[in-house]
Each structure stands twice: as structure tokens, then as C-alpha cells.
Amino acid sequence: MEQLLNAFQNATQAGLQNIAAALDQFSKGVAEEIARAKPRAIAASEDDEQLPLDVALFDSAPTVAVPKHAKFVALQEIGHRFLMTAEGVFVEVRRPWAHIIQRLDWTRDSTAKSTGPIPPYGTVEEKVEFAFGRLGSALQELQAFAAEARAALPNEYAAWIIWDAQKQKLQYRPLPATSATPGSITFDRPALAEHESLAIDLHSHGDSAAFFSPTDDADDAGEVKIAGVFGGLGAGSEPDVAFRLCVLGMFIPLKVPAAAIFKQPQEA
């Protein structure tokens, strides 16, 4: 009887070990399948019927980011991929006899005809769209700033126009200066509620011309906003303005006629 009991216990233990091994293998298989099914970084809806074609293209020549802090690991398999870097797009090619990394010509000069590989992706049109419509929607706020900037002469003046996402409207907000002179102004950035964001950043140059200085370039770098400068505000001067869209260090000029803001009274 004791021998039978020992045999049963040994068989049971061996069975449990086999089950555990099978479960472990199953878990690894599921994890690998999930990793293979992980969606690619493609800007498309997951239920788009054409997405598998783009996935196949992506897998044939993927795009990867080159790390800024971690060590770059070169392509090991035979094939090629595109490298996104701080200096443009590079192509990396691996063959049994060569390993090549080269910057793509068209990332240096957008007007140059490409003679090298092109990432197998689609194209997109440039776009600038504001939730409040055209910049002219802020005319009332811009005129309010012009009046207050003139009142602050000879010193510079500053104000923000805030986008209120709850009310879906622009709101004018003067910025009390901590220091203001005819050539500079400093202020503490106001705290904004979660539903508020800076849309238009305004400052004046007093009676001087409207332009963006190197200091303005440094202040605007890294921000997403519309920046505006008002100048020629003194008596007898011709008012002028300068506007640009700031996009993380890229500046896009915006045409805003000063006459639309500084309306002259009609002659009788």
C-alpha cells in the first residue's frame, strides 16, 4: 500500500511540473504574440481597412528615433531603416558586407531632387487652423491693447489674449509689469486655469518700430502661440505691427494690416 501511495504522489508531482512547464510556455507564446500584434506608430485609425498595407510598408523599412541619452544600437539584421535625429532624417543600411548611415539629401534642402531612398509613407498638407477662426476675431482685444499701450508711453506694455476652452472664446488679460522702460519690459507670467491657454502674446515698442528682437526670439523659442509687437505709437508717428506664429522655435510670419487695428476717423 505504501509503495502504491508513493508511486501516486510521484506521478502527481510529475504531472504538476508538466502543467507548470506548459503554462510557462503558453504565457511566453502569448507575450510574443501580443508583442507582434502591437500597433505601429502610424497616424491612422486601427479599424481602417487599408492599415495592414501601411503596416507592411512600415515593417519593411521602419522609422526609429535615435536616443539622445541612451547608447545608439546599430541595425543588426540585413535590411534598412530610417533614423529620426535632431539633424534630420538618416537612412541606415545593413548588408553582409557593409553598414552604412547617411543623411538623406532632401532633409538638407527641400528643393533638391531626391536621389536616395524615401520613407515609404504618405504625405500631408501644411495646416494652420485656429479654434477662434481668423486672427481678425481678436480685433476688439487688439484694439484694447493698442489703446493701453499708447497710455503706457513712453514705456513698453504687455498683455496676453487667452483662449478659454470652456467658453470657447478669447479673453484679454493685461500683464502688470514688474519693470518697464522705453526699451524693455518684464512681468511675472500669470497662472492659468486648466481650461485656459495662452493664444496671443502682445508687447509694444513704444514709439519705436514694430519688430522681433533677438530677445523676443529667445523668449518665444519653445512656445506655441501667436506673438505680436506694436510700434510707432507716439503722437505724429505711423503705427505699425508685426505678428508671427511661434511653433516650438519655428516662426511663421502672419500678415496683419495695422490700419485694421488703428482705424482712422472718417473725414466729414
Rank of each mutant, 00 (worst) to 15 (best):
P190S: 09
K169L: 11
A221E: 14
T107L: 01
G122C: 05
L23T: 12
A218T: 09
L104E: 02
Q50A: 15
Q171E: 14
S184P: 02
A74M: 08
H195M: 13
I162S: 03
S110D: 01
G133T: 02
P67D: 06
P265S: 00
F130T: 05
L51D: 02
D201H: 12
Q166Y: 04
L233Y: 11
S45L: 07
D105P: 05
S213A: 08
D47N: 08
S237Q: 14
K167T: 07
T115C: 05
Q25H: 10
S27H: 11
A147C: 00
A147I: 03
E238Q: 11
I19G: 06
L51H: 08
F243Q: 11
T181H: 09
S197P: 01
G206V: 10
L202S: 04
L254I: 15
I261C: 09
L233M: 08
S197A: 12
E32K: 13
P67E: 08
R81T: 02
G236S: 10
A146E: 12
W106E: 08
L198N: 06
A180R: 04
F90D: 10
L198W: 04
F230W: 03
T181Q: 07
P117N: 00
A65M: 13
F212S: 05
V224Y: 11
A147P: 00
S197R: 07
V64A: 12
G206I: 09
G222D: 06
V66S: 10
I19V: 15
T115D: 07
R189T: 14
D164G: 12
L23W: 07
E126Y: 12
E2R: 13
L135E: 01
K255R: 10
A65F: 14
V241G: 02
A65T: 14
K113M: 06
P67L: 08
R94Y: 00
T85W: 09
P174N: 04
G133L: 02
L170I: 08
A44V: 12
S213C: 08
A159N: 04
W163M: 03
P214G: 00
A227W: 03
L53P: 00
Q102K: 15
E148W: 06
H203C: 08
D216F: 13
A152I: 07
W106R: 02
E92S: 09
T215F: 10
D220G: 10
A235F: 08
F262C: 02
A138P: 04
A61I: 06
G116E: 03
F90K: 10
F132G: 01
E223G: 07
H195E: 15
I100F: 05
E194N: 10
W160C: 04
A74D: 03
G133H: 05
P257T: 06
W160V: 06
F132K: 06
T63R: 13
F58I: 01
N6P: 00
T123E: 00
Q266T: 13
L139K: 05
G88N: 09
Q143W: 03
Q166G: 02
Q13I: 10
A7E: 15
P52Q: 13
F8C: 12
K255I: 07
G29Y: 09
L57P: 02
R94S: 01
G79E: 12
V64R: 11
I100Q: 07
R36N: 13
